[in-house]
Design a protein around this nucleic acid. Structure first.
Length: 386
RNA sequence: CGGGGCGUAGCGCAGUCCGGUUAAGCGCGCUUGGUUUGGGACCAAGAGGUCCUCGGUUCAAAUCCGAGCGCCCCGACCA
């Protein structure tokens, strides 16, 4: 990607409404843009991060044997009357009356919809256990949206639902998801603690939450619940067991705030110069900085390195703007690219500099050795996140 | 929803108390030209405003009064 042709709008100063560090940096690095309270656009750079998190989540869920589907955001309120949650959720749900005078809602969560599917498709013990999940935009009219995307009214969530024959099965599914969550958060470079939690409106008997470490007091990035028979009974999701008896399915549900992870990772990975992305979710791994684009030698070498990295599938952006070196350094640090390749005063010795964002360490490398240096560094770092 | 704060150019602010040549200003950013080129360069010339909205007071309102809207922070709730 060429910086000059991309859409990155960095800012020297954060808007005064931003108080938490992730909020300030998300705005300053040009990752998000506010449309309304708790409603944000993911700008191109922010979207790249969001997609990377999403893919890590998807990959690990798939590995655990969960199956992806996509349910609608738009739901008939009638479904929610079956579980009495229309009242319980109250004003947190965004509702409206459609032109046919039907009451509709925008899904804040999907227990009702998934249980409706299960009760119609799952008829036999032979079809269980199963875990289904989706990655989807959720709508909650929060009493108080805050800290930008940490608590938004519209946000991206991965929600999974497990269905088992009995309590033992539920325990197994639950533990599988718990282990999967640990892997996901580790891969995202997130330090976290697991705490027993209140189940709230989701219900069920037992739940634990994954709380990201960081200064910001807010999620909690993940929450897993043993729902038991609560929904299957109220919505009549029964299967026929081996002994020809109709039994309710044992359910669990498992949420991850995908967009919240983006903010949580920043809360735990920044310094005075900006964001320090873990390699796994960085928008670009490498930022190539030609210090002076008026110098054709520098430009040529930069373009060569750029093409070389692209051909080797290393995600790279080249800062080909007509800006001073200082501006490029500041932007590179702010945006948090893990590696900066500085091409400038060392070219006379056939060298360039590789700066590691996390440590600030700068290594001089021969130009024709840079690819292998990067590959081994990236491999090493990625291994640590596994 | 209770408590607190804010709303002036894209961002950060001054001006508001004490109404009037500050007859809308500063820094950053933006445009053009030139000089620069290793940590947010310099010089010059520019563009950019419903002073949140509506109403009221007044000869005169960014400034005073009223209502509304929006945004942020603390609390209860949540991924």
């Amino acid at each position: 990607m060429r910086w000059s042709k991309y859409f990155i709008l960095t800012q020297k100063e954060a808007p005064k409404e931003a108080e938490t560090i992730s909020h300030k940096l998300l705005i300053r690095a040009g990752l998000i843009d506010k449309l309304s309270a708790g409603v944000y656009t993911y700008l191109p750079l922010g979207l790249r991060v969001l997609k990377k998190v999403e893919n890590i989540v998807r990959e690990e869920m798939d590995k655990a044997g969960a199956i992806e589907l996509l349910m609608p955001s738009l739901q008939p309120a009638s479904l929610w009357k079956e579980t009495a949650r229309l009242e319980k959720m109250g004003k947190d749900m965004i509702r409206f009356i459609d032109r046919h005078n039907r009451e509709m809602i925008f899904g804040p969560t999907h227990e009702e919809v998934i249980t409706d599917i299960i009760r119609r498709y799952i008829k036999s013990w032979k079809q269980l256990p199963i875990i289904l999940y989706q990655i989807q935009t959720k709508f909650r009219d929060e009493i108080r949206p805050r800290f930008a995307i940490i608590r938004a009214r519209e946000f991206l969530m991965k929600d999974a639902y497990s269905f088992d024959l009995d309590e033992d099965g539920l325990d197994k599914s639950y533990n599988l998801m718990k282990e999967t969550y640990k892997k996901i958060f580790k891969k995202c470079g997130l330090k976290f603690n697991i705490k027993e939690a209140e189940s709230g409106v989701i219900g069920g008997k037992f739940s634990e939450e994954f709380v990201a470490e960081g200064e910001c007091s807010e999620l909690e990035v993940g929450h897993i619940f043993k729902l038991g028979l609560e929904y299957s009974k109220s919505m009549k999701a029964y299967f026929v067991d081996k002994d020809n008896q109709e039994k309710p399915v044992y359910m669990g549900c498992y949420g991850i705030g995908v967009s919240r992870i983006v903010a949580a990772v920043i809360e735990g990975n920044y310094d005075e110069n900006g964001i320090v992305w873990p390699l796994s979710i960085a928008p670009f791994l490498v930022d190539i900085i030609p210090t002076n684009i008026g110098d054709s030698n520098i430009v040529n070498i930069s373009e060569k390195v750029y093409n070389q990295l692209k051909m080797n599938n290393i995600s790279v952006i080249i800062d080909d703007r007509e800006e001073s070196a200082g501006v490029k350094f500041k932007d590179a640090d702010l945006c948090g690219f893990p590696l900066q390749i500085i091409i400038g005063r060392k070219v006379k010795d056939n060298k360039l500099e590789v700066k590691k964002r996390k440590t600030g360490e700068i290594v001089e490398i021969a130009i024709d050795k840079v690819l292998e240096y990067l590959i081994s560094f990236i491999e090493l770092e990625m291994k640590e996140l596994n």
